[in-house]
């Protein structure tokens, strides 16, 4: 099955993805912190809100919602799974 690999930041509202990996450009301490917050490789993440004007987006991981800006989200590689009705 072909899956589209892109960055977490490129997701639109309602889109679901699975985390594949982290860019090396993201500092190690950031990467560890993101994983501590639940953004593990293999974890399913849903983009709940993608506000206008490149404002930080709201993502759901497990039962928690986090807002990330492109500084972090653009360094997380994900494969698209589809859209979520949430």
């Amino acid at each position: 099955m072909n899956t589209t690999v892109c960055s977490l930041w490129s997701l639109g509202a309602g889109q679901r993805c699975r985390i594949e990996s982290y860019d090396k450009a993201l500092a190690e301490n950031y990467r560890v912190r993101m994983m501590e917050l639940g953004f593990h490789p293999g974890e399913v993440v849903t983009c709940l809100q993608a506000p206008a004007l490149s404002a930080p987006k709201v993502y759901r991981v497990s039962n928690t919602m986090f807002s990330l800006d492109d500084e972090v989200a653009s360094h997380i590689r994900v494969s698209l799974l589809g859209t979520d009705a949430t």
Binding site: L37, P56, S67, L68, D69, E71
Partner: peptide, 11 residues
């Protein structure tokens, strides 16, 4: 700049 915290905000 990497001494600082990124914008990661728990909603």
């Amino acid at each position: 700049q990497y001494n600082d915290l990124p914008f990661v905000l728990e909603m």
